[in-house]
């Protein structure tokens, strides 16, 4: 008489289905295969983007831009005038940063960048946005209570320092130019770039450490 080991059958069933991707993964697979099949996008275009943003493009690009601006007054002027153009010196332009505005922190102004609508971000100079940047809480609170948000990131601003919050859009994105720390006189661009962090270019960090990031 055959016997049924329900535990064993359950294990076989789970094993069979363990190779089945999750529902969202299958939905993406369906979309991707249809988009490629209809000639709307090239498979290489998708694969290249993933490789670039998972491994190659990161905030060190923005750090190089800021370091140059700190060292070269002409470049600084060009960056403040039209950052989308200025980053082309490094070949860092991208469709998302065609219109990019650099905003300078000073002793009396601190800049903070958010996208209240979704997650617009200067990808081609900062890489993928951190997940907190895309959270509903950050998107809502950065505008309503920027000082409280900054405090959670460890930034406490004196009352005399004004906070300017910049709301990114699909058409215009922002890059914060942090203040150059004291004690870095005579440093090379490479040395300076090493201490410039991603968060300082979003505005959730204000003071930079002299230790390489």
């Amino acid at each position: 008489m055959p016997s049924f080991d329900t535990k064993k059958i359950g294990e076989i069933h789970r094993e069979l289905h363990s190779h089945l991707p999750s529902d969202p993964a299958l939905r993406v697979k369906a979309l991707e295969s249809l988009l490629v099949e209809k000639g709307l996008v090239a498979q290489e275009s998708i694969d290249n983007w993933i490789e670039m943003y998972a491994e190659r493009i990161g905030p060190k690009r923005g750090a190089q831009v800021i370091a140059r601006a700190w060292c070269d007054p002409d470049y600084y002027a060009r960056l403040m005038e039209d950052a989308g153009q200025a980053i082309k010196d490094f070949g860092y332009e991208g469709h998302a940063t065609e219109h990019l505005k650099a905003v300078q922190n000073t002793a009396f102004v601190h800049n903070l960048v958010v996208c209240t609508l979704c997650s617009c971000y200067p990808f081609s100079v900062l890489g993928m946005s951190p997940i907190w940047y895309r959270s509903a809480a950050y998107r809502a609170r950065a505008v309503k209570e920027p000082r409280a948000v900054l405090a959670e990131f460890g930034v406490t601003l004196p009352e005399a320092v004004k906070v300017r919050v910049w709301d990114s859009t699909a058409e215009l994105r922002y890059l914060v130019v942090p203040e150059r720390p004291r004690g870095t006189e005579g440093w090379s661009e490479a040395q300076l770039a090493a201490i410039i962090t991603r968060d300082s270019m979003i505005g959730t960090q204000r003071d930079l450490s002299l230790e390489p990031a």
Binding site: A25, V28, K29, L31, I46, D47, I50, Y53, A54
Partner: peptide
Amino acid sequence: WHAQVLAG
């Protein structure tokens, strides 16, 4: 799939 959706 997180990367694939943004890449798409």
